[in-house]
Amino acid sequence: MKAVNLDVPWVFVGKTDTELSVVYLVEHAPAQSLAREDGWRAFRVAGQMDFGLTGVLAGLSAVLAQAAISIFALSTFDTDYILVKEEKFTKALEVLELAGYEVPRAILPLEK
């Protein structure tokens, strides 16, 4: 197995007893992998998330689920990231705004 390149600007690694998942920007993804799915866009939940907060990701995902938008959620020590398929990205932002969430337009480009 090749090493995960941690020197790129955006990479997320999740490892369990049954899998190793690595999320890269498309331009940094290795040429070969066991499975790969392109076409995602992401947005970051604003601000540092205190561990005492509950339901933030659940609220966001519920709004998106009601609009038939599947998500791929990534959590770090500081915050959460929500990835949606490219074709649902604009709709995701719109339904979150309609639900009362503040959605800044500086969005993380997970694909160029």
Rank of each mutant, 00 (worst) to 15 (best):
M1K: 15
M1V: 13
A3R: 14
D7W: 10
V8E: 05
V8F: 07
P9M: 09
P9E: 10
W10E: 13
W10V: 14
V11C: 07
F12D: 04
G14N: 14
K15D: 10
T16L: 10
T16A: 09
D17I: 07
D17M: 14
E19L: 13
L20S: 10
V23Q: 08
V26M: 08
V26S: 13
H28C: 11
H28Q: 12
P30M: 14
A31S: 14
A31D: 13
Q32W: 13
E37A: 08
G39P: 05
G39T: 07
G39Q: 09
W40I: 06
R41C: 10
R41L: 05
A42T: 06
A42H: 00
F43T: 00
V45I: 12
V45T: 02
A46V: 12
A46W: 00
A46I: 08
Q48M: 06
M49I: 12
M49P: 01
F51T: 07
G52W: 11
G55H: 01
G55A: 09
G55W: 10
V56E: 03
V56Y: 03
A58P: 02
L60T: 00
S61R: 03
L64A: 04
L64K: 05
A65R: 12
A65L: 03
A65M: 02
Q66R: 15
Q66S: 10
A68R: 13
A68H: 14
A68I: 03
I69C: 08
I69N: 04
S70G: 12
S70C: 09
I71L: 00
I71G: 05
F72I: 00
A73W: 07
A73T: 09
T76A: 09
T76H: 10
F77M: 07
T79P: 04
I82W: 05
L83N: 01
L83E: 03
K85M: 01
E86K: 12
E86T: 09
T90H: 07
K91F: 05
A92N: 00
A92K: 01
L93N: 05
E94N: 03
V95P: 00
L96H: 01
E97N: 07
E97Q: 15
E102K: 06
E102D: 06
R105P: 02
R105D: 08
L108I: 14
E111P: 02
E111V: 07
K112N: 09
